[in-house]
Design a protein around this nucleic acid. Sequence first.
DNA 1: GTAATTTACGAACGCTCGCTATCTATACTG
DNA 2: CAGTATAGATAGCGAGCGTTCGTAAATTAC
Lengths: 409, 409
Amino acid sequence: MSKGTVGGGGTTMLRRINVAAVLDAVRRSAPAPLRVAELVERTGLARPTVAQAVDELLDAGWLQQHGPDSADRSLGRPAIRVSLRGRAAPVLGLDVGPHRVTVGVSDLAGRKLSLVRRSGPGWTAQQLLGVISEVITEALAEAEVPAEDVAAAVAASPGIVDEHTGRVQLVPSVPGWSAIDLIKHVRGLLDCPVMLDNDANLAALAIAAARGGTGTLLAVQWGERLGAGIVIDGRLHRGTGAAGEIGFIATAPDDVINPEDSRGPLERAVGSEAIAALGRQAALDHPESRLAELGGEQLDTADVFAAAAERDPVAQAVVQRVARDFARALAPAVLVLDPTAVVIGGGVARAGAVLLDAISDQLRLLTLNHPKLELSALAEDAVVTGAMRMALDEVWQRKLPTPALTSTT
Amino acid sequence: MSKGTVGGGGTTMLRRINVAAVLDAVRRSAPAPLRVAELVERTGLARPTVAQAVDELLDAGWLQQHGPDSADRSLGRPAIRVSLRGRAAPVLGLDVGPHRVTVGVSDLAGRKLSLVRRSGPGWTAQQLLGVISEVITEALAEAEVPAEDVAAAVAASPGIVDEHTGRVQLVPSVPGWSAIDLIKHVRGLLDCPVMLDNDANLAALAIAAARGGTGTLLAVQWGERLGAGIVIDGRLHRGTGAAGEIGFIATAPDDVINPEDSRGPLERAVGSEAIAALGRQAALDHPESRLAELGGEQLDTADVFAAAAERDPVAQAVVQRVARDFARALAPAVLVLDPTAVVIGGGVARAGAVLLDAISDQLRLLTLNHPKLELSALAEDAVVTGAMRMALDEVWQRKLPTPALTSTT
DNA sequence: GTAATTTACGAACGCTCGCTATCTATACTG
DNA sequence: CAGTATAGATAGCGAGCGTTCGTAAATTAC
């Protein structure tokens, strides 16, 4: 309950509003530098007001001054241009998976300063904490950012995340992981606000930011597990904390969910392991097929899609079945949510057009407003990028206080 | 003054912010009157500032002054108390259905001033326009509100509504309805901002407002047709315009949607007509049952639920089947959206606990975080109430400007 | 090379607004 | 009837913004 200062205040508040307006205008045109005259136009403020705000922001280190653009051949005295000083408040994103830890450091303008990835074969929870510390240190060193400068950090974990306690439920892949307080651990390294969120949510945030604009996005992460994030007009939808858990959608008419299971029905039906299993069975049934030829003994998911891309009817049948199960499961959610776009990422997304077209055909039969169906352009960086994005949002939300009328009941 | 003014922040803007803060504080405690000292505390502003704002709002007619509360026996000089002057900006809500037109008039504080309902047997589009005019006139007269005083109006129509053009698609019940520009017609009567929205959306808004607080609400309207509205933290989620169209969720494993159909698969499976049909079939198969006894020749939906409430196994089997189909269809959406609560309204909701418990049991088997499942407390007034609510929100949003950081493209 | 032109930066002035402090008004209590 | 507690009105002060004018720097024209 933020007491007092709910809205309005004295002239100092007004000044803060105007400084924030100027900073926000610079942020929106990042990374392009802006002239003061442009700031005057965009904020609607008077020149002295803008100038004073710019001075203040320069002193505080939020803005940096550029020399006149030599390419700009306009008449008259060349304008001073300012842009965000990225190093003012770098942020850190952390993607923790059972076999891989990724850390990204980004500056205030959203430019990546470093990205460090480390893979390993199934760490324990304790080992994972050690790896996290190492990779964070390495990424900060590569970005040349002292640990104490980091303004915010966001960690991504699979499973269902409790926003408040920072604990994770439902993580089968790493034994003991749900007992770890990851936020506390990271805060011990960084001394800044640290947040934790679901990996699918953060990937969705990154994809939404990359697509830009408003609207509703349903971003599916499709690998061994299935999860989805929902972004509505740039804001993440979390529900009560477990929104987007599409892996647990029932597929067979008498499926029943057991929250204790490591996999949900849809994951068992169309997760990457299931696809590989379907492919192996099909190869056994049709040893003469291109699929059997391609896959051999250790046929995996990629082989199925490769064979289907070569028009092998056996593989195509498998893809058809997967696409159908997936579309049938997702259609009710698409009808209810009516998203602008559905983006598919994760390992299975590497299948490409073969799978996408099949899903699109099925989904078209089951929905009213057909959303755009796309593959994620961000590939495996989506989660870290989203984590950095959320950390950035956090920093901006703290720096740009919307002063009026925002308090909730 | 010479330029476009709004968007920047001068001292006049600051004054507007503070006046808005005072008005907002009064609104939040409506309908209870507030003393100036309380306003000082709640806004965090100084007393002279609040006093000036109150004077201004009194002059403008937004607030009214109360005499000292005779029941308040506190020491010292009695305080002046102010409250919203409801008649300052009354709003109008309009619910248009194929067989019924309802108009409600509400004052600024959300108090209902009048509610007029008229039923008829299937009007044509042209007749409907006439009825609408009459009922609006009648409701305004009963509320003693001149037509030119109305500050905003919202109309509810079944079907998919295009926010921008104000046209309606997918309305089978009223021939020619989609060609009518309802907004234009109402604006001809009222001369104020008029908006149009889906009836399920508006019902959801009313239910969310009645429940209060934040969170995600999925409000299902269940009658001959099925629709749902989604409210996230008090804001309606529309998707691309067709969000919540649960009636078109496929039920059978090989269902396919045809947008030209008047009914979707789920409506054909569990709409009130379908329930009655299932009941009639069950009564034929089991003529000795309580269901057959109750319903007789013209067995309808209510009979099925009545018999089930009396523990007739035949009727219970029908309810079970309906609940199962409904829950199976809704479960994927619930998993993705993860709502705080699912509220069921509309004609079928009159079934009460019999149906609700059956659905709850089924849904529990198919979801992770089980949302609260409730019946709507608003019954048939939900849609008008939601329409008035949205009109109120419109008025407040216009009167309480958010100062900065918004307008740029 | 000098002057005119164009553009942008910088400083002084006046205005509005909100906050602090003080004074006045009102009603209950002993 | 006097005292006291609470609330409303009023003056002075400070802060910030907007307007206006003067100055600096670069390009173009002669």
